[in-house]
């Protein structure tokens, strides 16, 4: 009985944990930007869950197989799928999570993201927060799948999206 368990353990020791969709070590990003446009104007763009390709230059196109689910085709890369958790029009708050990972397209095995808008003088402060796990959640990840690569990818996606949204909304004034 015990021997069995031990043999089972030994065989599992060498299994790569790449297939696990989650791990014990989350990372975070916390980005903000001030956009010179009213909160409602920014919210109209941000709250349209399937409309992200309109303002995010890293997203080529979006399809929605069912309500609350979006498949993002990343520019020059593959697809990842998000699932909407909460959309609160009064709080201007949106949260979603990664439903299907594709670490070759985006080196993160799982994330939850929340975006919130608040009034800042005449404009809007946009906050983008994420909790996520590296692509390879084992203890010896290759460089392209480690924590640093995951943080870089999450940061780049948030920053590029917010900067582009700011540019388009402020330019239209």
């Amino acid at each position: 009985m015990k021997l069995w368990a031990t043999a089972l353990m030994a065989s599992q020791l060498f299994v790569t944990s790449l297939a696990f969709a989650h791990g014990p070590t989350p990372q975070k990003i916390d980005e903000t930007i001030v956009i010179d446009a009213p909160v409602e104007t920014v919210w109209k763009k941000v709250s349209d869950f399937n409309g992200i390709a309109d303002w995010h230059p890293m997203v080529e196109s979006v399809t929605s197989p069912e309500e609350g689910t979006r498949v993002l085709k990343l520019k020059g890369k593959g697809e990842i799928t998000d699932s909407l958790d909460e959309k609160d029009d009064a709080k201007h708050y949106l949260s979603y999570r990664l439903l299907e990972e594709n670490i070759e397209a985006f080196p993160v095995s799982f994330y939850t993201v929340s975006i919130e808008l608040s009034k800042a003088n005449e404009g809007t402060e946009m906050s983008w927060k994420g909790r996520f796990y590296r692509a390879d959640t084992g203890n010896f990840p290759p460089e392209q799948y480690n924590d640093e690569s995951a943080v870089k990818a999450m940061e780049a996606f948030a920053k590029t999206g917010m900067a582009s949204l700011k540019e388009s909304l402020e330019g239209k004034k």
């Binding site: 015990k2 368990a5 353990m9 599992q12 944990s17 696990f20 989650h22 791990g23 014990p24 203890n139």
Partner: peptide, 28 residues
Amino acid sequence: DWERNAVVVINPETKLVVDILSVGKNPA
């Protein structure tokens, strides 16, 4: 033990693992 799908039993006096029990996938 998240990675090995197990519960590890430690003796803190000897600081040694005394048993490894098999459980489900990725025990939290």
